[in-house]
Structures are given as C-alpha cells and as structure tokens.
Design a protein around this nucleic acid. Structure first.
Length: 260
DNA sequence: CCTAGTTTTCCTGTTT
DNA sequence: GAAACAGGAAAACTAG
C-alpha cells in the first residue's frame, strides 16, 4: 500500500517541497501518511492555518500526495510505481502506441486479437482492410464508435458490467485502491482518480479496447450526472461523487488504511 | 425489428 | 502550454 512506502522523513521532505516547515508538520501527530491525508482533507482550513499555508495550497499538496512516490528520484510524477508488490498484471507497461499519424487508429491497433473467427462481419472487415493507398477513409463520419469485428459471443464475454460498477469495484480492491483510485471522503461517496490514465487502461483491458483514454472514460463518467449515478464535484480535478442511484459502493475499510 | 440506455469516439470551447 | 472539464454529435452495442 502507499503508506508502506513512506517514512516519516519522506513525509517531511514532501512537505518541504511545498515550503512547509518540518517543525509544523511534527506537531500534527500523525501515524501514517494515510492518517495524515485524512486528517488534512477533513479540515483543510484548520490544517492550512496550522501549517502556515493557504487552504488552496494545502489542498493542492493533498491532491498530489498519492501521486508521489517518495522513493523515486523525480518529484511528484505519476504514481506508476506505487503498486503493491507481486501484482504483475498491473506492472505491464502502459505504452503509448504512437498511432497519431493514422486518421483511423482503430484500423491499426484497435482489434489486434489474432482470433478473428469466421464471423461474417470479421471476414468482410478483413477483405476491405489494407487499402494499398494510405488512409482511404471507410467511414462517413469521423465521430462515433468504430464497429467491432469481434464475434457476438466474444463481445458479450467482455462487455458486461457498467463503467460505474467497474470504478466502484476498483475502490473495493486493495490492488487498485488507493494506488490508482482512492476515497476522498468515503461517507459522502467522494473519490478521486490517482492515476487517471492507468484506470482508463484497465477499463480498456476489460473491454478489449487498447485505445481507451481518460479523456474518453471521463466523457462516459459525465453522462452519469444526468442519471444521478454520479454527482458533479466542482473545483476538484479528477474527483467524482457517487449519487443517489449508485448502489453498493460503501466499504468497511476505505482506502485499506493500516491501523497502526 | 424497434427503442431506450450506455459507451466510445471526436470535437470545440473553457477552466485550472 | 498541458490537463481537465463541459457537453454536443454521431455511431455502435446491449438489453428488453
């Protein structure tokens, strides 16, 4: 878990990077980085005054907390290395295929599954692909979801489960929470993406879509506002809140904090 | 086959 | 300037 990576020294250094003096931090009497984080986010104003910084500054510092690996040489970078030990599936490189030159990236890398079965749909796709000439557009509109070439069975196999349920389940899994996504305020259902692109890749894995990005995932998240599965949280980046129509999201031990 | 709901993709504009 | 946020459009897919 994240907190296991932090020594007290790391914490003081991290605060120092925000210009906050060590002595002030020592007075806070925290037991772990998770403990500290919760204390501060529960009453930003109070702790901001204790630490002698603005609430806004402290909020920003808190926002960055879980995205910072204290053992990395570079400062406050993406939390890619903060995975629990032994979690190999998560260790795979999230590589960016630079398919930016293609007008239709899905033609190249969208469905690279070798198992193109003898589905009629698939065969047709096979026939019309590789149009010798570069980038001959096959679709009338540039927008919209590209058609799948997987068989119906194949699609069904991977497609059940709503996005919000997937997100909810990540929050209940110590493999992903709080390293990739974490609770900001569990009682109120407020949570935050710690590593937005990695969560998007996970979602893409589930849907067999290597082109999933946080940009696209977040659009789907915003649609949930209308159905009140999620409620908008303003002025907080990467933060969402479960709404009245989301169920089963509460957990016994949010963020899997170690009691110590 | 039709429909409603969901998701993916893309885009333009705004905010942080 | 980069990342996020906001939504509108359009297309694909699911479930019923």
């Amino acid at each position: 878990m994240v907190n296991s990576l932090w020594t007290r020294e790391n914490i003081f250094n991290w605060f120092a990077s925000y210009g906050i003096e060590r002595s002030r931090v020592e007075e806070l009497n925290f037991t772990s980085v998770d403990d500290l984080y919760r204390m501060m986010t529960n009453d930003i104003d109070l702790y901001a005054s204790k630490l002698g910084v603005s609430s806004l500054e402290l909020q920003k510092a808190c926002d960055d907390l879980y995205g910072y690996n204290p053992h990395s040489s570079s400062f406050r970078q993406d939390a890619g290395h903060v995975f629990p030990a032994g979690n190999h599936e998560m260790m795979h490189e999230v590589k960016q295929e630079s398919s930016s030159q293609l007008d239709y990236p899905w033609e190249q890398s969208y469905y690279k599954e070798e198992d193109l079965s003898t589905d009629g749909e698939a065969e047709e796709f096979e026939k019309q692909e590789k149009p010798q000439v570069q980038q001959a557009p096959r679709r009338t509109g540039k927008r919209g979801r590209p058609p799948s070439i997987l068989t119906k069975a194949k699609r069904r196999e991977k497609s059940h489960g709503k996005l919000w349920e997937f997100i909810r389940d990540l929050l209940k899994d110590p493999k992903y929470c709080p390293s990739l996504i974490c609770w900001e305020n569990h009682d109120d259902g407020v949570f935050r993406f710690v590593s937005s692109e990695k969560v998007a890749k996970l979602w893409g894995d589930k849907r067999k879509n290597t082109n999933m990005t946080y940009e696209k995932l977040s659009r789907a998240m915003r649609y949930y506002y209308k159905s009140q599965i999620l409620l908008p949280v303003t002025h907080r980046r990467l933060v969402y809140k479960f709404g009245p129509n989301a169920v089963n999201w509460r957990c016994e031990n949010p963020n899997f904090a170690r009691l110590s």
